Computed example of a mutant assay.
Amino acid sequence: MGSLDGTRRIGRFTVERTLGNGGMGKVYLCRTPAGLRLAVKVISAELAHSRAGRIRFHREVEALRDVRSPYTLPLYDAETLTPPYWLASRYVEGPTLDQHVRKRGPLPERRVAELGAMLAEALAGVHAHGLIHRDLKPSNIILEDGEPRLIDFGIVRSDSWTRGLTDPMSPPGTNGFIPAESLRGGEPTPAVDVFALGVVLVFAATGLLPFGHGLPATLRIYQGVPPRLTGVPAALAGVVRSCLAPAPADRPGPDELMAELGALLKPPPGAGRPVPKPPHPPTVPVADPPHHCHAPVPPAAGGGCALRPVAARLLAAGLSRPLIRKAVLHREP
Results as ranks from 00 to 15, higher is better:
residue 3 S to E: 10
residue 8 R to T: 12
residue 11 G to V: 06
residue 11 G to A: 05
residue 14 T to M: 03
residue 15 V to N: 09
residue 15 V to G: 11
residue 19 L to G: 10
residue 20 G to Y: 11
residue 23 G to S: 09
residue 24 M to S: 05
residue 31 R to W: 00
residue 43 I to N: 08
residue 48 A to H: 07
residue 54 R to E: 07
residue 54 R to T: 12
residue 55 I to W: 03
residue 55 I to N: 01
residue 58 H to S: 01
residue 58 H to G: 00
residue 59 R to K: 03
residue 62 E to M: 06
residue 70 P to W: 11
residue 73 L to A: 15
residue 75 L to H: 06
residue 78 A to L: 01
residue 80 T to F: 09
residue 83 P to S: 02
residue 85 Y to G: 02
residue 86 W to Y: 15
residue 94 G to T: 15
residue 96 T to V: 11
residue 98 D to Y: 15
residue 99 Q to W: 14
residue 101 V to C: 02
residue 111 R to K: 12
residue 116 G to N: 10
residue 117 A to Y: 10
residue 117 A to H: 13
residue 123 L to I: 11
residue 125 G to M: 09
residue 125 G to A: 15
residue 126 V to Y: 11
residue 129 H to R: 15
residue 129 H to G: 08
residue 129 H to L: 14
residue 131 L to A: 10
residue 135 D to Q: 12
residue 136 L to P: 12
residue 143 L to I: 12
residue 143 L to M: 14
residue 148 P to W: 15
residue 155 I to E: 11
residue 155 I to K: 04
residue 156 V to L: 07
residue 160 S to I: 02
residue 161 W to T: 01
residue 162 T to Q: 14
residue 163 R to K: 09
residue 164 G to T: 05
residue 166 T to S: 12
residue 169 M to H: 13
residue 171 P to G: 10
residue 172 P to Y: 06
residue 178 I to W: 11
residue 181 E to H: 08
residue 181 E to W: 12
residue 182 S to K: 02
residue 182 S to G: 00
residue 185 G to N: 02
residue 188 P to M: 10
residue 190 P to C: 10
residue 194 V to Y: 04
residue 195 F to R: 01
residue 195 F to V: 01
residue 198 G to A: 06
residue 199 V to Y: 13
residue 201 L to E: 09
residue 211 F to E: 10
residue 211 F to W: 15
residue 212 G to E: 10
residue 218 T to R: 04
residue 220 R to E: 05
residue 226 P to K: 03
residue 233 P to N: 01
residue 233 P to G: 03
residue 240 V to G: 04
residue 240 V to D: 05
residue 244 L to M: 06
residue 244 L to S: 04
residue 244 L to I: 07
residue 250 D to S: 14
residue 252 P to K: 04
residue 254 P to G: 01
residue 255 D to S: 08
residue 262 G to H: 15
residue 267 P to E: 07
residue 269 P to G: 00
residue 277 K to Y: 01
residue 283 T to Y: 02
residue 284 V to I: 14
residue 288 D to T: 11
residue 289 P to D: 02
residue 291 H to A: 05
residue 298 P to C: 05
residue 303 G to C: 05
residue 304 G to K: 09
residue 306 A to C: 13
residue 311 A to P: 03
residue 318 G to S: 04
residue 318 G to T: 08
residue 321 R to D: 08
residue 321 R to C: 11
residue 325 R to M: 11
residue 328 V to L: 15
residue 328 V to E: 12
residue 328 V to T: 15
residue 333 P to S: 03
